[in-house]
């Protein structure tokens, strides 16, 4: 699919994957806000995986696995997407160049660390970053990275390195672009269904480390940090806050973007429950931010001062219960 008549327009968004999908849909004539892209993908989540370690810290995620937004939208909106990985870096670059020559804008998964346009302060080994390549000039790609304010450029060789880094969530050169985008979406039909599914997932997971139960498991873990090495305990708290704020979540670990989605959906369907749950979710997001503030206050305590893990544990448990109330309310939506 391509759209040569319309020049590609960059946009600045909170999150890479939802930003990429919003930009892509917009380019192909389906106006979709980032919040709608995120909400409609059904990718809101919480998971605390104590046995999967990255950089020595357990995985804590406020959203579903990488690519969940792309795949969720593909399914829920009925998009046709081409998703392609490569075994050899050179093949991946050739394929990308060919698509660009054809006038496509192309989504790609990359490492963050190997992208030279990221400032050193933000370069960590995270392999599931997303961006759009919308052109090439000589040895440079023109890149729309939605978490940056303006379009950026990246050397061809550097992008190849970033696309073919090996390891956890290795991108294997993943490229994706739509083959078919529907012109209209029957929102009244799909929105309640998608939201109810998300709410069910958060409330009724069979595993005790996902959804609300995952938040409570993390809260209990914080209580147990008292018995751990002080430096580790502080790094652990910092790690939670980084996953919640630093990685580009729109604030409060995607809870604000989801509140924004609920609001937009509520306006679209003229639905009071959605409006009300949007306000509830905003309050939950504010609580997550308070938890982050408290955690950082604990991190900053000087040597001898004791850290109050019980207070943090309780705060996070309160957040979990407040968030559960939102999903319970959402389950009253008629599908």
């Amino acid at each position: 699919m391509n759209n040569r008549t319309k020049p590609f327009e960059h946009g600045h968004f909170a999150h890479c994957e939802s930003g990429v999908m919003a930009l892509m849909m917009r380019h192909y004539g389906l106006p979709l806000s980032e919040a709608m892209a995120f909400g409609l993908s059904g990718a809101l989540m919480f998971a605390y995986l104590p046995f999967v370690k990255l950089g020595g810290m357990p995985v804590i995620a406020y959203r579903a696995l990488p690519k969940a937004i792309i795949k969720g939208l593909r399914k829920n909106l009925g998009l046709k997407m081409k998703m392609q990985t490569f075994s050899r870096p050179q093949q991946g670059t050739t394929a990308l160049n060919r698509l660009l020559a054809r006038g496509e804008i192309v989504g790609a998964q990359t490492s963050v660390f190997w992208l030279p346009y990221f400032p050193p302060e933000m370069r960590f080994h995270f392999n599931a970053h997303n961006l759009i390549i919308y052109g090439r000039e000589n040895d440079e790609y023109l890149i729309s990275d939605p978490v940056f304010e303006r379009p950026v450029r990246c050397a061809v060789s550097a992008l190849q390195k970033a696309r073919f880094v090996k390891g956890v969530m290795a991108p294997r050169g993943l490229l994706y672009y739509p083959l078919k985008v529907p012109e209209t979406i029957d929102y009244a039909r799909i929105i309640p269904r998608i939201i109810r599914k998300t709410a069910r997932k958060m409330l009724k997971t069979p595993v005790p480390i996902a959804g609300i139960r995952g938040i409570l498991a993390l809260s209990r873990k914080i209580g147990k940090l008292a018995g751990e090495d002080r430096r580790y305990a502080k790094l652990f708290l910092g790690h939670i806050v980084r996953m919640q704020e630093e990685i580009g979540t729109g604030g409060a670990g995607f809870r604000f973007i989801y509140a924004s989605f609920l609001q937009e959906a509520g306006l679209l369907l003229n639905n009071k429950t959605l409006q009300e749950t949007s306000r509830m979710m905003t309050a939950v997001g504010d609580q997550w931010r308070e938890f982050a503030s408290l955690s950082v206050r604990a991190i900053r305590l000087k040597k001898e001062r004791p850290l109050d893990f019980t207070a943090l544990q309780k705060k996070l448990a309160d957040v979990a219960h407040a968030e559960a109330a939102v999903y319970k309310k959402l389950l009253t939506l008629k599908a």
Binding site: E149, F256, S260
Partner: peptide, 14 residues
């Protein structure tokens, strides 16, 4: 903040 190195991040707010 120093760790943004003069960049900005997009936040959802009312």
């Amino acid at each position: 903040i120093s760790t943004y190195a003069n960049n900005k991040k997009a936040i959802y707010a009312t």
